[in-house]
Design a protein around this nucleic acid. Structure first.
Ligand SMILES: [Zn+2]
Ligand SMILES: [Zn+2]
Ligand SMILES: [Zn+2]
Ligand SMILES: [Zn+2]
Lengths: 165, 165
DNA sequence: ACTGTAATGTTATATTGTAACATAATGCAG
DNA sequence: CTGCATTATGTTACAATATAACATTACAGT
């Protein structure tokens, strides 16, 4: 069986599939919510997914330019703002980079596993982590609005790969 | 009884006390570890504590300059690097800002409560959060090297303050 | 087609962080 | 104490990330 929210994708997976799946999801979600997933926004989202690891704004800008679009920093940042506001993209603030959301549509605060070796990121949605955090904060009278958890380390595949050497 | 690791300091606390306490701690720690807490590093650490909320590198640079020291960006960043490497200061990456560590000396990965209203930050060291995170990651075969948790919201005092209006 | 709104283009600039090399301070061996 | 190696700081220039402000274009609804 396939995992419902696969952690790190295997090296040999069909990545075009990931991208098109994410895009279809996003299209449906925006349709349903009356959001305007314009050509630019669609293009940026596609690039983000195509990179399939956290990608910087200026890197996206380059890629947009190579695809023939006239773009300047605000072009990218505005698209990113839209995508983030609507939960289609997350920002990894420890890296100044952006990544597609694996659980778009259902309200969540994400947690990220960031592999220092291969650069890939897995998005968790571990309810237990969320509830422990909420509990810890509430004990101090703190009302949580949002939070980000960014975990660096080594993913399973990279661990095995390094053992083979 | 007072909490061993007080969350948000009360508005009327004697803050000079906080600062001098933190500095004495840092001095003792560096002495003991054979680390060179030079005048510059001491000065930067003092400024960070004096602000008593996350403060940006360029803000520190201004403050240093106003204290009469010749300083440029690398001056500040190098001092920050030293202080972070040795666990005396943490970086709040969601804000590009730096804050004094409340638990300097004992190895830990910190968690931050950031009040959006007053700007203050409380450092937690909640072992339960740490263990849930480790567990969640290990289940996926991920080896955790480090992590940061930054929680935004409203602190207890600000909640009460807003009720009074 | 007309019109108000939202999106994008465009230019300039702000903010945050580093590279690279010169000088000065510090600690230590002799 | 003196010279030497190491570490820290000064200095200049620049890279990387992000936003402000205003002009133009596309779009949706009438
Ligand atoms: Zn994929
Ligand atoms: Zn990996
Ligand atoms: Zn204080
Ligand atoms: Zn507050």
């Amino acid at each position: 069986m396939t995992h419902n929210n696969p952690p790190f994708p295997s090296a040999d997976h069909d990545h075009k599939n990931c991208v098109s799946h994410a895009l279809k999801n996003a299209e449906a979600y925006c349709q349903q919510q009356g959001l305007r997933l314009t050509k630019l926004r669609h293009q940026v989202l596609e690039l983000i997914w195509a990179n399939h690891q956290p990608v910087g704004a200026y890197e996206l800008l380059d890629q947009l330019t190579h695809e023939g679009r006239k773009a300047a920093p605000p072009t990218v940042y505005r698209a990113l703002d839209f995508l983030m506001e609507n939960g289609l993209v997350h920002r990894i603030s420890s890296r100044n980079a952006y990544v597609g959301c694996s659980n778009a549509g259902h309200e969540h605060t994400a947690q990220f596993l960031i592999c220092e070796s291969c650069g890939q990121v897995a998005e968790l949605d571990n309810a237990q982590i969320g509830s422990v955090i909420a509990k810890g904060a509430n004990q101090l009278g703190f009302t949580v609005a949002q939070w980000t958890l960014e975990i660096s380390g080594t993913c399973d595949q990279c661990k095995h790969r390094s053992q083979d050497e």
